[in-house]
């Protein structure tokens, strides 16, 4: 059962991941991702009914810190690496669409 990712799926994923992809690259990536997914198909097919998922190797719980103020970065440190700054803030091109 070969996994075949369509170019449309690849473009959708690229959009979700915010990666600009040319038409040519989309085809190429579709092939590569299909090959990788094909390889993991055996795992997908395993019957693991009743086996719990491990999302974390540790069994720690309730790691909490005290509600105490720590020093902040200076404005220079905060903005120093920014590609564009205006008025003490990070400047970005216009935003189409609202916050999700």
């Amino acid at each position: 059962m070969a996994v075949e990712l369509t170019v449309a799926e690849v473009r959708h994923v690229a959009r979700l991941a915010r990666l600009e992809l040319s038409a040519e690259e989309s085809v190429h990536v579709a092939g590569q991702l299909s090959a990788i997914l094909d390889h993991v198909e055996a795992v997908r097919a395993l019957d693991l009914e009743g086996i719990p998922a491990t999302s974390h190797p540790l069994e720690l719980v309730n790691v909490l810190r005290a509600d105490e103020v720590r020093p902040c970065l200076t404005r220079e440190e905060v903005l120093g690496g920014a590609p564009a700054v205006e008025d003490g803030r990070f400047a970005v091109p216009r935003i189409l669409g609202e916050t999700p």
């Binding site: 105490e68 103020v69 720590r70 020093p71 902040c72 970065l73 905060v78 003490g88 803030r89 990070f90």
Partner: peptide
Amino acid sequence: ATATKLFCGCPNRFGAAPNTQVCPVCL
């Protein structure tokens, strides 16, 4: 109404000058 942010020790305070209440974690 905490003194600090959810995941770091920056003050949880309204009205400060922009980008003065941040650290590596909340940035």
